Computed example of a mutant assay.
Amino acid sequence: MPTLKAAAASTLSLPAENYIYSITASVPGSFAAISSDDSLRVFDANRLDHVLVVSRKTHDGGVTSLRSYPTSNSQLLATGGREGAVKLWDVRTGNTMLQMEMARHNPVLSVACNSETNTIVAGSELVSSQAIVSFWDIRNPQAPSLQYVESHNDDITELQYHPSLSNVLLSGSTDGLVNIYDTTVTDEDEALIQVINHGSVHHAGFLSDRTIFALSHDEHFSVHPATDPDEPGQGPEPVHFGDVREPLDCEYVAQLCIGSQGPYIAAGNKMKRSLDLVPLVPNPAWQFDKDNVWHLPGAHGEDVIRSVYLDEQSQSVFTGGEDGYVRIWKLGDDGDAQAQAGTAKTSRKDKKQKDRFKPY
């Protein structure tokens, strides 16, 4: 069971009583983070003290989501906010390149990007009995190019494009549904390829071209085969793990991470001040590989970890949490790792906590 040690930690110069929402890749060798102070910051992957504040006030009402807009040099970032806007940022200049408005100004809770089709898509909070999946062509961003308004009846917490099919989009919602769409179809009913009923969706996405996962806000986890409309017939049965807190000895699941060796469940335990990356393996059926768990002792002390990023280029794991820190973890000998255990105590004990189960 490999153990990682905390190699570096930084608050990214955040004001006191703030914490990290999400981390994603930015320009080569750097990462971006959004935080509870509504800022967008980019930091060096090797020197956490090298921080560029792209915007101190990313969105009116609060920033909720962050995604990289993949280009040849990955210098664009997309954010969503509670005022009902999606913004595309140029990291080089720190300026907003584009701003797109959600219909009825529904707060944006989730964002996905597809540079192959020049598309940014946003999922909204439920307002006046309507939750919207809205698409924009960034070459003509004045109005949505497509909207789905009937597929969900509660907050849309997750959006993700298929890993190899640029026309296939996944959405997840607190209404309990994970939907798969063919976005070349404008009729909403006909666009739906597959519907999975899982429970209030915290995270969902593609494990592979043919496999979907879903994680609920009460830590229930499942794996489902993706429907292939060109190959009708009975596929593999879904695997329902149920509540994974007891089998993974955790209090919460931060997210699912996918590396070149496969997917990992990031399972946190505040009481034990630990984070484990538990491999999820498909043979003979989907199961947790508890013999090859990666341990991050100390984690973020007694605070929840909000975001985990596996960076295989630097062979590091980046974590961001409610203690207000970004931490870098690297492989070390057991002695070094054990010395780190218990040292990741928060220095911000008086900060205000926010409910992690509330979609943000």
Rank of each mutant, 00 (worst) to 15 (best):
Q160D: 11
Q160E: 15
Q160A: 15
Q160N: 10
Y161S: 06
P163S: 10
P163W: 11
S166A: 14
S166I: 08
N167D: 13
L169T: 02
L170N: 01
G172Q: 02
G172I: 04
S173N: 02
T174L: 03
D175I: 02
D175H: 03
G176C: 02
L177C: 04
L177E: 00
T184H: 10
V185I: 15
T186C: 08
T186N: 12
T186P: 05
E188I: 03
E190T: 12
A191C: 06
A191G: 01
I193G: 00
I196C: 00
I196P: 01
I196F: 03
G199Q: 04
G199E: 03
G199M: 01
S200M: 06
S200R: 04
S200F: 03
S200V: 01
H202Q: 14
A204N: 03
L207E: 01
R210V: 13
R210N: 15
R210Q: 13
T211I: 09
I212Y: 07
L215G: 00
S216F: 04
H217I: 12
H217N: 12
D218C: 08
D218W: 08
F221S: 03
F221E: 01
F221Y: 09
S222A: 15
S222F: 05
V223R: 04
H224W: 14
H224I: 05
P225L: 00
P225V: 02
T227A: 08
D228F: 10
P229W: 09
G233L: 11
Q234P: 10
P236C: 08
E237G: 07
P238F: 05
V239M: 13
G242E: 08
R245A: 01
E246I: 14
E246L: 14
P247R: 01
L248S: 05
D249W: 09
C250N: 05
C250P: 01
Y252F: 11
Q255P: 09
Q255C: 15
L256A: 03
G259N: 12
G262R: 06
P263W: 10
P263S: 11
P263T: 10
Y264E: 11
I265R: 00
I265S: 05
A267I: 08
N269I: 09
M271N: 13
R273K: 14
L275H: 12
D276F: 08
V278D: 05
V281Q: 14
P284W: 10
P284Y: 09
A285F: 13
D291Q: 14
D291L: 12
D291E: 15
D291P: 06
N292R: 12
N292S: 14
W294K: 14
W294N: 13
H295Y: 13
L296E: 03
L296M: 13
P297V: 06
A299Y: 07
G301W: 06
E302V: 08
E302L: 09
D303F: 07
D303W: 07
R306I: 00
V308T: 04
V308F: 05
V308Q: 02
